[in-house]
Computed example of a mutant assay.
Amino acid sequence: MVKTIGIVSLSSGAMGEEFAEHEVKIGLKRLKEFGANVKMLPHALNGIEYIRNHPEKRAQDLLQAFQDPDIDMILCAIGGEDTYRLLPYLFDHGELRNAVSKKIFLGFSDSTMNHFMLHKVGLNSFYGQAFLPDICELDTTMLPYTEMYFRELISTGSIREIRPSDVWYEARIDFSPSAVGTPLQRHRNEGFELLQGRPRFSGQIFGGCIDTIYDMFDGTRFADSPGLCEKYHLFPELEDWKGKILLLETSEEQMSPEKYHQALLYLKDTGVFSVINGILIGKPEDEDNFEEYKALLLEDIGIPTLPIVCNINIGHALPRCIIPFGVMAHVDTEKQKISFK
């Protein structure tokens, strides 16, 4: 049972801005109702400019959260775009390895970088939700599917299985105070889709947001990102990927098919597709470019026997489940479930 949640801003500092005050208030109230105490790490509410200009303070907050014996769970405030800049402050002198302790770490999007950092020091983490986008949902409650998995995680410390949501929601556009209490437009969800390969396969899941993974190899957005990721060996060696299941989902920036193609080619060049047991693809936000992505997955990967399962409710499309990294997962598309042991 999670008693205390530490909230960190490791990428964007949006949580500390005045425009988000009403969202933060909603989220803190919900966490209290869930029975959790909350600690805001020292710099978590310092705002966008401060957080952008002080990656060393973001790293300091993460280290402090791991070292605080009262904190059971570390929850990312939101994603962002430059979490890779924490690397020198976490790895130059073994800071993260020396500080890390067994706690729940939950985040998604640009927090993919943090998941890769924690994997590097041997800590299993949880992918799929964050404070502002999920706990602070402006409707009268959290989205039921999202809340179900969050409650399971904080009450048991694990996720037993995930199944498809019955519905998916269009992305919220208005986050102003006037939008509080307004529902999202919903649509019927079609469930897990087996794109190719066998319907049942197993392995430990690892991966994240393909936009962020792309930044590990391509310097178009941040010129220094590939160099830093290579210096600290952030992307695991091929041996580490053997037998795993690769998770990929796309951000709210709705990656163009051309860029998606390039991202898949970067991954293909690593050799990862030749050693993994399968791929899970998150539903894109508002299902944008979904059919184009599917066609590219088949064409670019070029391994017909490799299972690819699409339409997982994970990442930037609403609602969101939570996927544990580093534990054995059993995917069964015929039974429409992914179970964990």
Results as ranks from 00 to 15, higher is better:
1 M>D: 10
1 M>Q: 10
7 I>K: 06
19 F>Y: 15
41 L>G: 06
44 A>R: 04
47 G>E: 04
50 Y>I: 04
60 Q>G: 03
61 D>G: 07
64 Q>G: 05
64 Q>H: 04
72 D>S: 13
75 L>I: 10
76 C>E: 03
78 I>H: 11
92 D>W: 05
96 L>T: 12
99 A>P: 09
106 L>S: 07
123 L>M: 14
124 N>L: 02
129 Q>E: 11
134 D>V: 04
136 C>H: 03
140 T>V: 11
152 E>G: 11
153 L>I: 07
153 L>R: 00
157 G>W: 11
158 S>I: 00
159 I>L: 10
164 P>H: 03
166 D>I: 00
173 I>Y: 10
176 S>L: 10
180 V>W: 01
181 G>M: 12
182 T>D: 07
190 E>R: 13
191 G>N: 08
194 L>S: 08
195 L>P: 00
204 Q>S: 14
207 G>H: 05
216 M>W: 06
224 D>Y: 07
225 S>H: 10
234 L>E: 04
235 F>W: 15
238 L>C: 12
239 E>W: 00
243 G>C: 11
243 G>L: 13
250 T>I: 14
250 T>L: 05
251 S>K: 07
252 E>C: 03
254 Q>P: 00
256 S>N: 10
256 S>K: 14
257 P>M: 11
262 Q>A: 13
272 V>R: 00
274 S>M: 00
276 I>W: 03
279 I>G: 06
280 L>P: 02
304 P>R: 08
308 I>W: 01
311 N>L: 05
312 I>Y: 02
316 H>N: 12
321 C>F: 03
326 G>L: 01
330 H>N: 12
331 V>A: 00
331 V>R: 00
335 K>A: 11
341 K>Y: 01
